[in-house]
């Protein structure tokens, strides 16, 4: 099967490369301030909290809570072939919120459900998405990764 091409690819820069490279390696990563410990998402070359430029890359666990979601049926022309798809807001366990997609069917979703990251193989970049925790005691992101 040919590799999926993203409808709207992100721009990758020298600074953000570790994030996008991480997704290819099955890691969701971001930056943390070494002065005040605030975690940013998305990664930033300076801390939005204290404006220090002293930041370091960290791996996120990729687990969190499904805060909200919506199924998009009317999409911009470039995403029209992907509808319907479900956008979500996930509050990661490290205390940051991200916007992504959740793969489960609408009827399976409920706010505050536990979710974990999976990786979407595409070019020119992989994306991170979420699925409901199948079994909280055993699941890891590797086991959840779809083909």
């Amino acid at each position: 099967m040919p590799t999926e091409q993203l409808a709207y690819p992100p721009r990758m820069t020298e600074f953000t490369a570790p994030f996008w490279d991480g997704l290819r390696e099955g890691r969701l990563s971001t930056t943390q301030c070494t002065s005040c410990a605030e975690i940013s998402f998305p990664p930033k070359p300076l801390c939005p909290g204290c404006w220090s430029s002293d930041v370091t890359w960290i791996d996120l666990r990729g687990t969190g809570t499904l805060r909200s979601y919506t199924e998009v049926s009317a999409a911009p022309s470039m995403f029209a072939h992907e509808v319907p798809y479900t956008l979500c807001l996930v509050d990661l366990d490290e205390g940051v919120r991200c916007l992504s997609r959740v793969r489960n069917a609408w009827d399976e979703l409920v706010p505050d459900a536990r979710v974990e990251v999976v990786f979407r193989e595409a070019e020119p970049a992989y994306l991170f998405e979420f699925v409901l925790f199948a079994d909280p005691s055993t699941s890891t992101s590797e086991e959840q990764e779809l083909p």
């Binding site: 709207y8 995403f79 997609r101 970049a125």
Partner: peptide
């Protein structure tokens, strides 16, 4: 545009 728009 880089971290949200790619999701549609």
């Amino acid at each position: 545009v880089d971290f949200h728009v790619p999701f549609g």
